[in-house]
């Protein structure tokens, strides 16, 4: 918002919104780059999804629009439904729900715990979420193979966790990587809860459970929605972790859509089909994103209407 000062000086109307021609010059470098290498490719990918483009062979240079051929082969493919299913488990289960709850629990535990442990857990969780995904994959690959750290700690040193329970292991690794971030968000939100309310509840002899359900959880609602959305999108982008840990296997057990798209495109040379799967990913993340925004909007509206009714 440009304040009215300069507008008066230049003799402009203050009420009207005017387009500053200088802003075009300011926006064009970033706009051009984003258009050429981000928005443009997204649109191009939408087109490629309906072509017979191949990685090698005659259709790699000479490809054309084939209408619904790819679409039909996608819907006829059982692997697609399986992939869609485990993608939702990974993105919503491990990302939106798992990492958010993990972060919330960590933040609550840290609030109540001794300072020594609070410091250690906080630092460890933050360190885990800043490490590059490749490093996380290396650590988790080793730690969950037979004889690794986690099978040893659980008292089953000879069990190949990664091979026997690939989806669980990959989901837990994803939570391990993400929940430091949501912990940070929840710790900040917990500090902002008004102490007066908690004190009043304590005076009324509210139990810890009542305080949590009636005061803390409602105050955290916006943070929960934001965290769930963020974790969801970050899990969608977490191609590297699964690719390095399992490569989609064993027997497609961890073949989430981003991996499926990559393998179809670059291993089986079906770039067109891979692009179509990419379009499904965009569609899914758009739906999930707007769903979360909607939930956030509805819950804040309800919260404010409740507040108004109380006044």
């Amino acid at each position: 918002m440009v304040s009215s000062h300069s507008d008066i000086l230049k003799g402009r109307r203050i009420d009207g919104r005017r387009f500053d021609s200088a802003s075009l010059a300011f926006l064009s470098p970033a706009g051009l780059l984003l258009f050429l290498l981000f928005l443009g490719p997204v649109v191009y990918s939408f087109y490629l999804g309906f072509t017979n483009l191949q990685l090698i062979g005659p259709h790699s240079t000479n490809f054309w629009f084939t209408g619904s051929v790819n679409l039909k082969s996608m819907f006829r493919n059982e692997e697609f439904y399986h992939s869609l299913y485990i993608t939702m488990i990974f993105v919503v289960g491990s990302g939106a729900i798992g990492s958010t709850i993990g972060g919330l629990v960590l933040a609550l535990l840290m609030q109540a715990g001794a300072p020594v442990f609070r410091g250690i857990v906080g630092a460890a969780a933050m360190l885990s979420c800043i490490l590059p995904p490749v490093t996380v994959a290396v650590m988790w690959h080793a730690s969950t193979s037979a004889g690794g750290v986690f099978p040893f700690l659980l008292g089953l040193p000879h069990v190949e966790f990664l091979y026997n329970y690939p989806m669980t292991v990959v989901s837990v690794a994803n939570i391990w990587w993400l929940c430091g971030l949501s912990m940070l968000m929840f710790s900040a939100a917990l500090r902002n809860i008004s102490h007066e309310m908690i004190e009043a509840a304590l005076l009324e002899r509210a139990s810890a459970y009542q305080r949590f359900i009636r005061i803390i959880l409602p105050s955290l609602r916006p943070t929960i929605v934001t965290s769930a959305l963020l974790m969801c999108l970050l899990s969608f982008g977490n191609f590297t972790l699964i690719f390095l840990m399992t490569g989609g296997g064993p027997a497609n057990a961890t073949n989430i859509l981003p991996l499926y798209s990559y393998v179809q495109g670059f291993t089986f040379h079906r770039l067109g089909f891979g692009a179509l799967l990419g379009n499904v990913i965009i569609l899914l993340s758009a739906i999930l994103g707007s769903l979360f925004v909607l939930i956030g909007y509805l819950s804040t509206r309800r919260a404010t209407s409740v507040k108004k009714a109380g006044e």
Binding site: L37, P41, S45, F239, Y262, I281, I282, G289
Partner: peptide
């Protein structure tokens, strides 16, 4: 600056930052 539809543009920019990069690989490769 005053830009028409600024909030819409900013919101779509925020949405772009959440798009998984792996979907761009095939068109960018092409």
């Amino acid at each position: 600056h005053k830009i028409p539809g600024k909030n819409g543009i900013l919101l779509s920019i925020l949405f772009l930052s959440g798009v998984p990069i792996s979907i761009l690989i095939i068109p960018i490769y092409q």
